[in-house]
Simulated assay, not measured.
Amino acid sequence: MALLTLAEAKAQLDITTTTHDTELQAYVDAIDEVIEGIIGPVTVREFTEQVDGRGPTLSLLRAPAISLTSFTPVLDGGPTLDVAQLHLNGALGEVRRKDGACFIGGPWMAVYQAGRAPVSPTINISGRILLQHWWRTQYGAARGNVGGADDFDVNEPVAGWGYAIPNRVLQLLEPFKTGPGVA
């Protein structure tokens, strides 16, 4: 399931023709990347990464994680761990052994699914607002101020983001941020 579809983007902008479909699709794709940069994966997909460390918990780079597909040793002769022997705390992206033992002898190659299914309506609305903001900056008054007044009336810069991401989008996404991983 996508964070935002082309049909939803067109509905948000009150566009009924196909004239801007290619351009709008580029915006939709960029919105996925930006929002996922803030809150982690939204669109469910498979990730493969090397996981290293010792101790009772290993952390995946992307959360929320939905399921582990495989967890295999990178080095020949390393300990093999069946995913049935592992517990995944998906919200944090943490992997623990069910037997309580510590991880030793890695690194491991983890293959897993991460994202959010279904996509929260709040995340979808955040994507719509971001799209509306970006579209308005491109077309401004020529598009009838889609969604309100000009940028400077309602959006103050946030350190590091400027006006690319309005405060209202960041505020809506705040509850979906995951904590920092433990290496």
Rank of each mutant, 00 (worst) to 15 (best):
I39W: 08
Y139D: 00
D99E: 06
T48I: 02
P180W: 06
D99G: 03
G140L: 02
D82M: 01
L75K: 10
T16F: 07
Q132G: 02
T57F: 02
Y139T: 03
R62P: 00
L4R: 05
E156S: 08
A84H: 05
R54H: 06
G93W: 11
P56N: 08
D32T: 00
Y112L: 03
S120T: 05
F152R: 01
G181Q: 15
G106W: 00
V95M: 05
P157Q: 08
I123H: 00
I38P: 02
H87T: 15
D32P: 01
L88I: 09
A164C: 00
A91K: 12
K98P: 00
G40L: 09
G106T: 01
P175M: 05
T18A: 10
I129C: 03
G90T: 11
V182R: 15
P175Q: 09
W161I: 12
T57A: 09
Q25A: 10
Q25E: 14
L81G: 05
I104M: 12
L173V: 10
N155E: 07
D153P: 06
G179A: 15
S59D: 13
I15W: 06
T72A: 14
W135Y: 14
P56L: 05
G37D: 14
F47Y: 15
I35P: 11
I31K: 10
L68Y: 01
G90Q: 13
W161T: 12
C102P: 08
L3I: 10
L61F: 06
I35E: 14
V119N: 07
P121W: 02
A30L: 14
N89T: 13
F71Y: 13
